[in-house]
Amino acid sequence: EITTGKSEWSVEYASASMPFGPLAQAFDNNLDAGQGWFSQVVDGYNNSPNTGAPFAVIDLGKSTWLAGVGILTSVHDVMPKSVDFYITRQELIENVITEQELNQVLCNAEPNGDGWVNSSDYTAYLAKVKAADAEIDWIHVGKVEIGALIPEFGQKEYRIDFDDTKLAEELKGRYLKVEATFFSAEEHAVLGGDRAKISEIFVKKVSKRNGVAVD
């Protein structure tokens, strides 16, 4: 079943969001807001540095047996080229970032967005987070590929449902890592895009095994 109640989800750590598209909007299940997670990576956007693929580690609240993953995109000029999903069997991740840093990631504290990304503080933050992330044993569980930028407006769903072989791997984890790959600046230039956005993150979970409910 597709997870709809996401009140237990939270951000453990992540790269920066833009102030007009906080990361939390990518899974708050409130599509009426019309927003989603924006991140700035494309070279030259507002003179921002290329800080690499935007990523977020999401605490699902409890260990979850994944049956599929997916995203909802928005208009063409903010489509990611692809999105990779990972889980870890590590039971607990904590103290990677401070509460203040988390509030900056979620755009609930200053500085955030471009102001933070262009600062030396953010460079140090990102180095710290990437070092901690490299110590975690991530298991790649799926990749959603958009394929090509198209002059299309409106939200579009891209989802992977695991087959029996994948389900048999029992890909269970409390933490989900989501990493977006941008279209190149040249690819974006065709339709005028310079950023990427995920309007919603989907997790499909195993709810029953041989008719017996799975916790």
Rank of each mutant, 00 (worst) to 15 (best):
E8H: 09
A16E: 07
A16D: 04
F20Q: 08
L23K: 06
D28M: 00
G34W: 07
Q35A: 12
Q35R: 15
Q35N: 14
G36C: 06
G36F: 04
F38S: 01
F38C: 02
S39V: 04
Q40I: 00
V42W: 00
V42Q: 09
D43K: 12
G44H: 08
P49V: 01
A53C: 12
F55A: 13
A56R: 11
A56E: 06
V57T: 09
L60K: 06
G61V: 11
K62L: 01
K62V: 01
S63G: 13
W65G: 02
I71K: 03
L72Y: 01
T73V: 08
S74Q: 10
V75F: 09
V75Q: 09
H76F: 15
H76W: 13
D77R: 13
D77V: 10
V78N: 05
M79S: 09
P80V: 14
P80G: 09
K81Q: 14
S82Q: 11
D84A: 14
F85C: 03
Y86T: 02
T88V: 10
T88S: 11
L92Y: 12
L92C: 07
E94F: 13
E99G: 12
E101N: 12
L102A: 11
L102T: 06
V105Q: 01
P111F: 09
P111M: 03
G113M: 01
W116E: 05
V117A: 03
V117E: 00
S119V: 13
Y122A: 04
Y125D: 11
K128N: 15
K128F: 07
V129S: 07
K130N: 15
V141P: 00
G142K: 02
G142A: 06
E145R: 10
I146N: 00
G147I: 13
A148I: 14
A148M: 10
L149K: 10
I150V: 14
P151M: 00
E152M: 12
G154K: 15
Y158P: 06
R159P: 08
D163V: 03
D164R: 14
D164I: 08
L167V: 05
E169P: 10
R174I: 00
Y175E: 00
E179W: 03
E179D: 05
E179C: 07
A180C: 10
A180Q: 10
F182L: 09
F182E: 14
F183H: 04
S184M: 06
E186C: 01
E187S: 10
H188M: 14
A189I: 04
A189Q: 12
G192A: 08
D194G: 11
E200N: 02
E200I: 01
V203C: 07
V203K: 02
K205D: 05
V206W: 14
V206T: 15
S207W: 02
R209M: 08
A213F: 08
A213W: 07
